[in-house]
Amino acid sequence: MDLALTAAGASVRAAAALSPRWGAAVALPLFGHVAPPRPVRVDDEPTMWRARRGRLRIPGIDRRGTEVETYEWGSGGRTVVLAHGWDARASQFAPLVRELVAEGHRVVAFDAPAHGASVGRRTYLVDWLDIFSALQERFGSFEAVVGHSFGGLAALVGVAGGIGAQRVVTVAAPADADALLTQFQAGLGYSDAVSVRMRELFASRYFPGERDPFAWLSSVRRPIPAAVPLLIVHDRGDRLVPFAEAERIAAAHPGARILETSGLGHNRILAADVVLDAVLEHIAAPIAAPAAESSAQVADREVVAAA
């Protein structure tokens, strides 16, 4: 087990022995803390060197203002936005960037606060949403948003909340913020009493004035519009985000397509040929006219095994 995680869990449990509220107070800053950025993989460096780099200023988690690094490839009006996950960076999308540019798309990615080349040590989903809004002002409606892991949840929440995108792709994404808090509790090993207080503090700290932020931080309780085609990619053996999360997303989005892989895990899935092909196909496919859909309609599922 990671020593830092073990120490963090011990500190939370020690505070919780005095009071669940104290335990939650110790846990909350850890929830938004981001580990030092991982380096860019050698294979991804040429793609990142070719990017046109820029910066966006967003309010930031403390609403005091912060800058994020952006990357742009290609040109034209067909803009595809790539949203990385927690403890990740834009360079992880390098294989997909190359494929999309070859197909004539403008591709835009970013390093969220405290990730990659962007400054900071803390962040949360509101930053991803603010980045989407800033990019929307610059480029107009997106042809597609592709999000990996935490970035996939951000894509779903953003489009459900009004970000203009013709299509959405999630890869290894959780279905809602509740799943993240449950995972965080399991990692630190604190009690359900602390968990209740943690959720209360989380809501008041990150979403002051919101009666129930978990209602809109959920692709299950607030799905994206039915007119927006959704591709859900997830590996059956994902150890970080269970495959059941993909099924939860699909259940809330009748007509979505699920690409179920095996043997690719949580991160290697981003560079797999079968996934790259599926994403390109999804983005290129014509969008059918909206039709009445039954709530009992199930998602279209495709199962593939890693070579």
Score class of each variant (00 low, 15 high):
Pro113His: 04
Gly76Pro: 08
Phe132Pro: 00
Arg78Phe: 06
Arg64Phe: 04
Asp212Lys: 08
Gly187Cys: 00
Phe207Ser: 01
Ala16Thr: 10
Ala35Pro: 07
Ala83His: 04
Leu129Ile: 02
Leu153Ser: 10
Ala24Asp: 06
Ser118Tyr: 00
Ala175Asp: 13
Ala278Ser: 10
Gly120Leu: 05
Gly161Ala: 10
Tyr124Asp: 11
Met48Phe: 01
Val107His: 06
Arg41Pro: 04
Arg41Ser: 13
Val119Lys: 14
Ile58His: 06
Ala215Gly: 06
Val159Ser: 00
Gly104Thr: 01
Ala177Met: 14
Val159Thr: 14
Ile232Ser: 09
Arg98Ser: 13
Met198Gln: 12
Gly187Pro: 02
Gly151Leu: 07
Asp178Ile: 11
Gly187Phe: 08
Thr123Lys: 01
Ala271Asp: 01
Gly85Ala: 02
Ala226Pro: 11
Arg55Met: 15
Leu276Ser: 01
Leu5Ile: 12
Ala250Trp: 05
Leu280Asn: 05
Glu210Gly: 00
Gly151Lys: 00
Gly23Thr: 13
Pro290Trp: 04
Ala117Gln: 09
Val274Pro: 13
Val220Met: 13
Trp73Arg: 03
His266Leu: 13
Leu3Asn: 11
Ile131Gly: 02
Pro290Thr: 02
Ile224Thr: 10
Ala102Leu: 07
Gly74Trp: 10
Pro36Val: 04
Val228Tyr: 03
Pro113Asn: 07
Phe243Pro: 04
Asp212Ser: 12
Ser91Tyr: 02
Gly147Trp: 02
Ala114Gln: 04
Gly60Ala: 01
Arg205Val: 06
Asp300Met: 15
Pro36Cys: 07
Pro174Met: 00
Gly152Arg: 00
Ala112Arg: 05
Met198Gly: 04
Ala112Thr: 09
Pro213Val: 10
Ala244Ser: 15
Asp273Gly: 07
Leu82Glu: 09
Val145Asp: 07
Ala226Ser: 15
Ala109Glu: 00
Asp273Ser: 14
Glu103Arg: 15
Gly263Lys: 14
Asp300Trp: 11
Ser118Glu: 03
Gly162Gln: 09
Ala155Asn: 08
Thr6Gly: 14
Gln136Ala: 12
Ala155Met: 02
Trp128Asp: 13
Val220His: 13
Gly54Phe: 14
Ala299Lys: 08
His115Gln: 06
Gly152Ile: 02
Glu45Val: 12
Pro229Val: 09
Arg199Asp: 06
Ala8Asn: 05
His115Trp: 00
Arg138Met: 09
Met198Lys: 02
Glu72His: 03
